[in-house]
Design a protein around this nucleic acid. Structure first.
Length: 829
RNA sequence: GCCGGAGUGGCGGAACUGGCAGACGCGCCGGACUCAAAAUCCGGUGGGAGCAAUCCCUUGAGGGUUCGAGUCCCUCCUCCGGCACCA
């Protein structure tokens, strides 16, 4: 039995006094940057979810340390943002008061966990010394033409009263408050992340990340190959005679559409514009104006989620009275406005091919429009052609389908036909190949208080003027009433002393931007700051950046697969292109961890199944709690937190400590028992390999097995047997391991002086092996044979076995399978 | 609907490139210690038949490949996560 409280205090004190966890940032020879996602400092304090994430990362960091690396493992606080601000509103405490006390509380809790943080290099995103560089990054993007203010349909959260990035809208709801998100046309600051879509996608092939995270990013970027097609809008018939044909052609409006199926253009029998499409007013015939306006009002009133409920509402839409020319057939086809076409994807307009697109098919059926088949099914699919009776479009698009009713392209395979059609239309500038992305530009304006002000000044004469670099930071002023308003006007717009400013360019009275930037901009570069904390001259110093970055291992939650992880890749790539960084990918290796659940459900306050770590730490100590968290399931899958199961790791650590005490007391050295020695080498091998692949639950199981072998039959272990055990326990139970190391006569700290144990393959093999003998694939006996025994020898021994003989009776031995030292299988007929 | 991931004892979970399924732990049962309980220590523990040696069954369901399948292939079911009228 050991006293966790005493030794944990002892070693935590030792680590601080001796700066054990602070690597030499300027001189480290084997630098290893071990990063974990910095927390948002909630008022509730540290919860098990945080601790689960950090503990796994700490296992990894301490393992790398014991493997001889100089590990830099910092922590900080992502303290700006809507989450913090909403909480401040709820409890009616100003964020400038609330957040510092939350950070202080978090810091106190984290210091008690024994995690190997370098407390001399922490980051707080609300510190002007930090966000002045966040603003600097904004200006760098602005100067590079990658930040622009534009009118665009944006997501508006009516409860948070701010716009949200696309990534922050989850199934039509605000990711923070779960309100239904609305669409609004607003002028906002955007970062042109879409310019980087291709590179963000391509680089995914070259970085060592969890597969699921890579897949999530690929899906989010959503690349589709196809073509941009132009459909000339037909003038109303009555007006035609006022124009010369040539002039008519020149002045014709084009409706651009994106399609992945240019091969079906001969089957485009109508067009559809999204209700928000800018051309709608212009093309709508006067007699249809009222109906179209009514429809647009109706759809505008729907929030995102209602709009997506296609099943309930069917395919609604109205005819505009206008027509466009199908560039392939030359026929005039009607133009509709319908909300099944989204302004946010492609061009906000489509060519509708009801025969080969299910949505268009439904719309055509509902509105009585022509359905024209232009892709013929092969024999295999005969009978699957678009058919109103069947209620389905024919959408197969493999090399087997061929084009029909498609002019000179009839008879071609669909894919080939599509390419040829695009080439043909391209000659008349009516088509061009196009790659389209689902990814949108990153909207970074927030009409909120708790964030870094966007460093822009608007001047009547000079226009948009960036704040000069030397005037940074633009400090967030204290605004007593920081509540957001319904009107989209930011809280900072209430503070005249803030927004009234002289134009830095001409000196005339001007006005500051009063929106703040998205929290995800704060967190998009924090890992660049850590090594250079304290440097007030620049965001990150070249020497330290060169030594420590990119990050060696980043461990974090899958919930940021497309948010933080995509944004920080983008910002890193931009900083690389602007010459500030030598690398363009921030994290060499990313591993996601799983989610802790309890009673089969995600932990949440509303369910009342949240685990408070403090009680467990108080009762069993931080070491036991760490071991339990990592033992309850595979780290990348998470697991079910069952409080009573903590007894396993608790007993294990106590037994391990007792073993060390017994060994020291006996003073016996060496490896008197070959079985124990073999177990030791096998364990070192497995533990070393499993630590490397972050398989912590099997590491702990292997060490438990080793301890069982060492203490089998109540035997007294030797000093040499338990020393490697103590070292391998280092990443798991650091305080206890230090105590054991000291007991064994090692010089503290274990993490500075212990060498990771090595194994000898020769020690793993035994002279004899147990060979399972199967008859027809079923186990009938195991025989003992010399290692490397030949098939003849093993077979002879097997045939002599009574149990084997019984199963061979009455049959003829037709085949023998022998895997040396592993198995013998006798096949009888 | 699309894209991921997963279904193994009472429970959490092991099983490297196909080769003794159920490691390790929780729980439970029995025993030791104790006046008793907790803690601790020792033994047992997938299901079924049998006094027993032993035999049969068993990795969500069904089929296949193979000397041999939890692992590979096909079909289906269930659960979890993500995206979702994406043209």
């Amino acid at each position: 039995m050991y006293d966790p409280k005493r030794i944990e205090q002892k070693w935590q004190g030792y680590w601080i006094d001796n700066r054990t966890n602070e690597p030499d940032l300027d001189g480290a020879e084997r630098p290893f940057y071990n990063l974990m996602m910095f927390p948002y400092p909630s008022a509730e304090g540290l919860h098990v979810g945080n601790l689960y994430a950090f503990t796994g990362a700490d296992f990894h960091g301490r393992y790398q340390r014991l493997r001889g690396h100089d590990v830099f493992q910092p922590i900080g606080f992502d303290a700006f943002g809507i989450h913090s601000e909403n909480y401040a509103l709820k409890v009616d405490v100003h964020p400038t008061k609330l957040i510092p006390s939350n950070i202080a509380n978090f810091t106190r809790q984290l210091r008690g966990t024994g995690i190997m943080y370098d407390w001399s290099h922490t980051v707080d995103t609300t510190d002007p010394g930090y966000y002045r560089w966040t603003q600097w990054i904004f200006l760098e993007l602005y100067d590079a033409g990658l930040a622009e203010k534009k009118e665009a349909p944006v997501n508006w959260c009516p409860s948070c009263k701010t716009v949200l990035a696309n990534e922050q809208v989850i199934a039509g709801e605000c990711e923070r408050c779960y309100s239904q998100v609305e669409q609004r046309m607003l002028s906002q600051w955007f970062f042109k992340i879409t310019d980087y879509a291709e590179r963000l996608l391509e680089n995914l092939d070259h970085i060592d990340w969890s597969d699921t995270t890579l897949t999530a990013q690929r899906n989010w970027i959503g690349r589709s190959e196809g073509a941009l097609l132009r459909f000339p809008v037909a003038r109303p018939k009555v007006a035609d005679d006022r124009y010369e044909p040539a002039q008519l052609e020149r002045e014709r409006r084009m409706i651009e559409v994106f399609t992945t199926r240019p091969d079906t253009v001969y089957g485009a029998t109508f067009m559809v514009l999204a209700p928000e499409h800018p051309l709608v007013d212009e093309i709508t015939a006067p007699e249809r104006a009222d109906a179209v306006a009514a429809y647009r009002r109706e759809t505008a009133a729907l929030d995102l989620k209602e709009r997506q409920k296609a099943d309930d509402r069917g395919k609604s839409g109205v005819f505009t009275g206008a027509h466009a020319t199908n560039p392939a057939t030359g026929e005039e086809i009607p133009i509709f406005v319908a909300d099944y076409v989204l302004m946010g994807y492609g061009t906000g307009a489509i060519m509708a091919v009801p025969a080969h697109d299910q949505r268009d098919f439904e719309f055509a059926t509902e509105h009585g429009l022509e359905i024209r088949t232009v892709v013929a099914p092969t024999d295999e699919h005969a009978g699957e052609a678009a058919d109103p009776e069947l209620g389905a479009a024919f959408t197969a698009h493999t090399e087997n389908e061929r084009l029909v009713d498609s002019g000179e392209f009839s008879g071609l395979a669909a894919a080939e036909g599509g390419r040829r059609i695009v080439e043909w239309l391209a000659e008349r500038r009516l088509a061009e190949p196009r790659v389209n992305y689902r990814l949108h530009d990153w909207c970074i304006s927030r009409q909120r208080y708790w964030g870094p002000p966007i460093p822009i000044i608007y001047c009547d004469d000079c226009g948009t003027v960036p704040v000069p670099r030397e005037d940074l930071p633009v400090e967030l002023p204290y605004v007593e009433d920081f509540k957001p308003g319904d009107d989209g006007i930011a809280p900072l717009a209430k503070d005249r002393t803030f927004y009234e400013v002289d134009c830095p360019s001409c000196g005339a009275a001007a006005r500051r931007e009063t929106d703040v930037s998205d929290t995800f901009l704060d967190s998009s570069w924090y890992f660049l700051r850590y090594p250079s904390v304290g440097d007030d001259e620049r965001p990150f110093g070249p020497a330290r950046t060169e030594r420590w970055l990119p990050v060696d291992t980043y461990i974090g939650g899958e919930e940021h697969a497309v948010l933080h992880l995509l944004y920080s890749r983008f910002i890193t790539m931009v900083l690389h292109d602007l010459g500030h960084l030598a690398f363009e990918e921030p994290y060499d290796r990313f591993r996601k961890h799983g989610l802790l659940i309890r009673d089969g459900a995600k932990m949440s306050k509303s369910r009342g199944n949240v685990v408070i770590p403090d009680e467990y730490v108080e009762r069993f100590g931080a070491d036991t709690f760490r071991a339990y968290l990592m033992f309850l399931g595979p780290y990348d899958e998470g697991g079910d937190f069952r409080g009573e199961a903590i007894m396993g790791p608790h007993r294990f650590l106590n037994r391990a400590f007792d073993a060390v005490e017994a060994a020291v007391e006996s003073g016996v050295t060496g490896f008197p028992d070959p079985g124990v020695e073999r177990a030791l080498h096998a364990t070192i091998k497995q533990v070393t390999e499993d630590f490397a692949r972050l398989s912590f639950n099997t590491v702990i199981a292997a060490l438990m097995e080793l301890l069982n072998a060492i203490r089998a039959g109540g035997r007294t272990p030797t000093v040499d047997e338990v020393r490697p055990l103590a070292i391998m326990l280092g990443p798991i139970a650091p305080h206890l391991a230090e105590e054991m190391w000291e007991l064994l006569g090692g010089e503290p700290s274990l993490f500075d002086h212990a060498e990771w144990p090595t194994w000898d393959e020769a020690k793993l093999v035994t002279d004899t092996v147990e060979v399972p003998v199967q008859v027809n694939g079923k186990l009938r006996a195991t025989i003992r044979a010399a290692r490397g025994a030949t098939e003849d020898v093993v077979k002879a021994a097997a045939l002599a076995d009574e149990g084997v003989q019984r199963h061979l009776e009455g049959g003829e031995l037709v085949k023998t399978i022998h895997v040396p030292d592993r198995l013998l299988n006798l096949v009888v007929k």
